[in-house]
């Protein structure tokens, strides 16, 4: 297995009028491999979006570094962007363009070979069942249609790494199910998929490995079974609540006891 995403000691601060300096991401490190789905979990404000944005070269970390597909996000952002597709938390589509136009447009922007673009776009439209609304302006689409279109435009240039911020939020079970199928399919084609989520069932079902973060810090990573072992809980929901609420204090107590 090839290391596709390597994150080392990542830090990001924000300055905010009310709160002063906010440490959004604090000393975060993890690795994700090819053909793997990595789930990033954490409560609201944990720093998931910030981490994914830094991976997508949208933001610069204050310290630490990220390597995607062998390219450094600071030194070689252009190649990083070529190697990945990024789906932002909001279904950000140009409201006055149709899905077909948007997908084609992003193929062009990402330098997908021009002579193959049309074929690729048609393939995706068919694969994602977009045909019916492919030529409707996206402002008129439902949330699910928009999200599907967004995913299609994210993978149009067939990148080896996919970074998805809450890909199934606000979707009904059937659409969400479809998206899970697509994500699994992408993995089977050897892609690395990293996504954030608040849906524990989804994480249980789809993820090969899971990382849980809180207050910008990585609490732990591992497969579902590994997390079960660490926490002694069975369901992902219980594992998550335990990790976020108790794990830290338990760990602190342990180290505190040692110090005593």
């Amino acid at each position: 297995m090839e290391e596709k995403i390597i994150i080392k000691n990542l830090k990001k601060e924000f300055y905010d009028e009310q709160r002063g300096t906010v440490l959004a991401v604090n000393d975060l490190s993890f690795t994700a491999y090819s053909g793997e789905i990595f789930g990033l979990l954490g409560p609201n404000g944990a720093g998931k979006t910030t981490t994914l944005r830094m991976m997508a070269t949208l933001m610069k970390p204050h310290s630490g570094n990220i390597s995607i597909n062998g390219f450094d996000t600071i030194k070689d952002p252009q190649n990083v962007r070529k190697s990945m597709g990024f789906l932002s938390a909001t279904t950000a589509l140009y409201p006055r363009l149709s899905p077909r136009e948007i997908i084609t447009y992003f193929a062009n922007l990402n330098g997908y070979p021009e002579d193959k673009t049309e074929e690729r776009v048609e393939h995706l439209i068919e694969y994602f069942n977009i045909t019916k609304y492919a030529d409707t302006l996206s402002e008129k689409l439902s949330t699910g249609m928009k999200q599907i279109t967004s995913i299609a435009r994210t993978i149009v240039h067939d990148p080896p790494v996919l970074i998805l911020d809450e890909p199934s939020s606000g979707l009904d079970v059937i659409v969400a199910q479809k998206i899970h199928e697509h994500i699994l399919d992408l993995r089977d084609h050897g892609k690395t998929v990293i996504f954030s989520s608040h849906n524990m069932g989804e994480v249980e079902k789809v993820c090969d490995r899971i990382g849980v973060i809180n207050n910008g810090k990585l609490l732990t990573t591992g497969t579902l079974n590994e997390l079960r072992e660490i926490t002694g809980k069975y369901y992902m929901e219980e594992i998550f609540i335990y990790l976020v609420q108790e794990y830290e204090t338990v760990k602190q107590k342990e180290t505190g006891n040692v110090n005593d």
């Binding site: 944005r53 070269t57 789906l87 932002s88 140009y94 922007l109 967004s150």
Partner: peptide
Amino acid sequence: EDKTTETTLTTSLS
């Protein structure tokens, strides 16, 4: 406002 800048910025354009 439409959040479309973000997705454009992650394409291979500088």
